[in-house]
């Protein structure tokens, strides 16, 4: 074993021990990447299909409801169906209104520390699992463009908060059913749960934890931010759960709205 001397450069590399195999792990290390790939692929396929099919994303006054799919809210294009807009409309946008907004939640999730862990492992194989060889010869991590852009997570978080507010507004609005008045329907519950999960996902985000108090050197002279940080920290520990739950539920919410809008099911009124 070598000498630590400030003056000498220690030799870092050399012949390594052990057999030249990808891994010696005997457990089912491939299971987790397989699950991740399956769920994320399913989501991407579904959301792409949904974005390209701007129909049935809104259940309006005709059906005495006010339910909008989260993929299309806020609906900003002039092509948005009546009732789904939020006050102003961009004229001249001929594509699906989903494309105007999806970049923001997509960016938030793509740069999310948890999703990064998952897709780097499952899709990029760097590494596929712990102590299993990287699938690539060269690796520069997040030091260069485009992955350098992962550092923008914080700014997507800010947009995420705006979207959460809008979706919360959508959920609250749904409780007022046109022509009937206040009421709780299956749709109001779906939209409320969706908004709640999105809030939990955003608030439990690492950038949020940093902004609330993590950036401080001392807590004792910032009692309010310390309390915020202590509130966020346990949420942050469950960030993974919220990430999956909110992802799956947002797709299910879209499915639900589409089914109601197309008349395949009715939005059951509870009281």
């Amino acid at each position: 074993m070598a000498v630590i001397e400030s003056s000498t450069d220690v030799v870092l590399s050399g012949v390594r021990g052990g057999p030249a195999v990808k891994t010696l792990r005997q457990d089912r290390w491939w299971l987790q990447p397989v699950v991740t790939v399956s769920i994320l692929t399913a989501f991407v396929v579904y959301s792409t299909w949904s974005a390209f099919n701007p129909h049935n994303y809104y259940v309006g006054a005709m059906m005495h409801r006010d339910l909008i799919s989260p993929f299309f809210s806020p609906c900003l294009a002039s092509s948005c169906v009546e009732g789904s807009q939020i006050g102003f409309a961009l004229s001249g946008w001929s594509l699906s209104p989903a494309f105007l907004i999806l970049i923001f939640p997509l960016g938030f999730r793509l740069t999310c520390y948890y999703y990064r862990r998952s897709y780097y492992r499952a899709f990029w194989w760097s590494p596929p699992a712990c102590a299993v060889s990287d699938g690539h010869k060269k690796y520069t991590g997040e030091t260069r463009f485009p992955l350098l852009m992962q550092n923008a997570h914080r700014y997507f978080f800010y947009f995420g908060i705006v979207f959460n507010c809008l979706l919360t507004y959508d959920a609250l609005r749904a409780f007022h059913q046109p022509g009937i008045g206040f009421g709780v329907t299956l749709g109001t519950i779906v939209l409320t749960v969706n908004a709640t999960l999105l809030w939990l996902y955003s608030l439990s985000c690492h950038a949020c934890r940093h902004l609330c108090g993590g950036s401080l050197k001392t807590f004792s002279n910032h009692p309010v931010r310390h309390r915020l940080w202590k509130f966020i920290t346990p949420l942050n520990e469950n960030h993974m759960k919220f990430a999956w739950a909110s992802l799956i539920f947002v797709a299910l919410t879209d499915v639900f709205v589409r089914l109601v809008a197309s008349g395949a099911i009715t939005d059951f009124r509870l009281f």
Binding site: A2, V3, I4, E5, S6
Partner: peptide
């Protein structure tokens, strides 16, 4: 000790 740049002979 390390920050002071001391020589340490390990093992």
């Amino acid at each position: 000790v390390v920050s002071m740049g001391t020589d340490v002979f390990m093992e």
